[in-house]
């Protein structure tokens, strides 16, 4: 058999999709570069200076933030205690908002909503809480509670609640919709569907989201503590302001160690339940 392939029929008078795709990528790439240059011009930001200063910044932090012998006593005196408090607070906040988020998300899912209006309202409320950054919540709540652990608690609570409600709604709709239909069809009532259908089928996925939020919240709690003056954030800020860079570096290291430890644990838990 000969190999002279005859030309296959193609739609006439039409730019090929391959050319179109290529053109789109080129335009996109050029567009991004143009935006980058324009925005740096407007903001007076010089990329060259920015990149040049990176090595200097690294050497500076490496020399300053090395814990020295005089900073070690802070570890047992304050850092560990504050870190422990911050970590527990994050777990408590996440657990608390998860309970509220679950109850709320049931009203918001396509499969279990009681009426469309409430469902829409739940989604809007959740988006509202989620889209205000936690730092903004801290600044607002600081007016109400002052330098108090409640400030950080509620700031994290609102954001976590909003985010978990949204993700719970999507997870439940994705995982449980089919078995919910079957249970409804067999005559099960609302609460029976929730406890026999939704919880068993989507619990593992929901817990996985809660674990993820615990990790995120421990990181965020540090930042929030700097603003609200509580927990580990307070001490980090205090060390910096009193130019005690060694102790500040030590604080950072313990935070990193804790976050990694939590991440490893939650990965293990996830592997076991999923």
């Amino acid at each position: 058999m000969s190999h002279n392939l005859s030309k296959a029929a193609r739609p006439a008078n039409q730019t090929s999709v391959f050319v179109k795709r290529k053109r789109m990528y080129t335009f996109f790439f050029l567009g991004v570069i143009a935006i980058m240059i324009a925005s740096s011009l407007i903001a007076n930001f010089d990329y060259i200076v920015g990149i040049k200063s990176i090595p200097k910044a690294i050497t500076w932090s490496l020399t300053k933030f090395i814990p020295n012998s005089s900073s070690w006593h802070w570890l047992t005196d304050e850092i560990l205690k504050a870190l422990f408090e911050t970590a527990l607070m994050s777990v408590a906040v996440t657990a608390c908002s998860a309970v509220f988020a679950f109850a709320f998300s049931l009203l918001g899912t396509r499969t279990t909503k009681i009426n469309p209006l409430i469902g829409r309202a739940v989604r809007i409320i959740a988006s509202f809480f989620r889209n205000i950054p936690d730092v903004a919540w801290v600044l607002v709540l600081f007016m109400a509670f002052g330098q108090n652990i409640l400030t950080g608690f509620f700031a994290l609570f609102f954001v976590t609640f909003g985010l978990l409600t949204r993700t719970f709604i999507e997870t439940i709709d994705e995982i449980s919709a089919s078995c919910v239909e079957a249970l409804h069809a067999s005559g099960a009532n609302y609460m029976q569907v929730v406890f026999r259908g939704i919880i068993p089928s989507s619990a593992a996925a929901l817990i996985s989201w809660v674990l993820y939020m615990i990790e995120t919240n421990i990181r965020n709690a540090t930042l929030i503590g700097i603003i609200s003056g509580t927990g580990i954030g307070f001490w980090f800020n205090w060390f910096l302001k009193s130019l005690n860079y060694g102790a500040a570096g030590l604080t950072l290291i313990t935070i990193v160690v804790l976050v990694i430890a939590i991440e490893i644990t939650s990965t293990q838990i996830r592997r076991a339940i999923l």
Partner: peptide, 12 residues
């Protein structure tokens, strides 16, 4: 689960 329709809410 086929029995849920026949049960009270709580025992379901």
């Amino acid at each position: 689960h086929g029995r849920l329709g026949h049960k009270s809410t709580i025992s379901g």
